[in-house]
């Protein structure tokens, strides 16, 4: 113990602590970055290229080499090498400058897209990851799962048709369902529609939509639509979005007089001494927690009122079927009601 003194011991400790933090902090830790880089082998690059091309072709855009390299975050030369290899293997071909998928390439791309969306669906239904994380996790999983594993997963999830954002999941034979609807800014004022799809890229805009608590499957009525903003009502709340954000929402217009419950509201907006009837549970409530709510009696047609207000603001206790059940705000926001 001759060399010991408290200061050097403390310094040593903090050096180790900082080192561990830099290496292992979530996502940005060097360890994870290195792991990811070593993991991104040729297969990953090829699959990402295929996927990008598929998305570009689907949206009717043309891609040349330059844009592709820009879109993908990989080393330039590695992308060029991969493209060379892919042309040899007949996955893609050039039409003058434009890159195009061959039939084999498209099939391969569809398989990747299928795994990606299935995995997002799995994360949404069976795990507790927050929805801002689904995309990134699926991005790395799509290169790992084999065709058979994807099939097993699909069966386990009940062969879902859409992923949690509303994107169609290609079947194993490569069939893709249609997403109905148009981008929200294209909807005229006063028209009514149902949100069928929420685009999760780019991340910045998606995070904004999540923060607004806009739910997939909910009805919207456009109130104002101009170049600077789009205002719409949904589930008793008013939302204001910039057109560029609103464009990430796909809405299927409802024309004929489907009985639109006009004064639908969220349970979270119920006040003390008010009573209401439950209309249903939002699509945003999934898996285990949805089933639990149904078990507890939050079903269509049930009468509900507030039993107890919480001293700290949440959760409030709701009186349903003679029982007092406390729900947190974010849960109550996913139960739709109609005030009496």
């Amino acid at each position: 113990m001759t060399t010991y003194n408290p200061i050097s011991a403390l310094i040593l400790f903090f050096v180790i602590a900082v080192l561990l933090f830099v290496l292992f902090r979530p996502i940005k830790g060097w360890f994870w970055i290195l792991k990811k880089n070593f993991g991104s082998n040729e297969k990953t690059i090829i699959e990402d290229i295929l996927k990008q091309l598929y998305h570009f072709e689907n949206s009717g855009n043309k891609v040349d080499m330059k844009t592709l390299v820009q879109v993908l975050g990989f080393n330039h030369t590695r992308v060029v090498d991969a493209i060379k290899k892919m042309t040899i293997n007949d996955l893609i071909y050039f039409e003058s400058d434009i890159l195009k998928l061959t039939d084999t390439g498209r099939e391969y791309a569809l398989r990747i897209v299928r795994v990606h969306r299935l995995w997002e669906r799995y994360l949404a239904d069976k795990t507790g990851f927050s929805r801002s994380e689904w995309h990134d996790r699926a991005e790395s999983m799509e290169h790992v799962l084999t065709h058979d594993e994807a099939e097993q997963l699909s069966v386990r999830l009940g062969n879902p048709k859409f992923d949690p954002h509303g994107d169609p999941i290609p079947t194993k034979t490569g069939k893709v369902a249609q997403v109905n609807g148009v981008e929200l800014p294209l909807l005229p004022v006063n028209s009514i529609g149902r949100i069928t799809h929420i685009e999760d890229e780019p991340e910045v805009i998606y995070k904004q939509i999540i923060a607004e608590k806009i739910h997939i499957g909910s009805l919207v009525r456009v109130v104002e639509n101009n170049a600077t903003r789009i205002v719409f009502l949904s589930e008793g709340e008013e939302f204001k979005l910039a057109p560029i954000v609103a464009a990430n929402l796909t809405v299927a217009p409802i024309e004929n007089e489907v009985v639109v419950e006009d004064n639908i509201a969220r349970l979270s907006s119920l006040d003390e001494h008010e009573t209401a009837k439950i209309i249903g549970i939002s699509k945003e409530s999934r898996g285990e927690s949805r089933r639990r709510l149904l078990d507890l009696g939050f079903v269509k047609g049930a009468n509900i009122s507030i039993d107890l207000m919480n001293p700290l603001g949440e959760p409030h206790a709701y009186l349903i079927k003679g029982t007092s059940i406390a729900l947190r705000k974010d849960q109550a926001a996913k139960i739709l009601i109609k005030r009496d």
Binding site: K126, T127, F129, P315, A317, I325
Partner: peptide
Amino acid sequence: KTVLKGEVSTFNLELP
């Protein structure tokens, strides 16, 4: 926020 964020989370509390 870290190791447990993937576990399923459901909340409800019955007041008997």
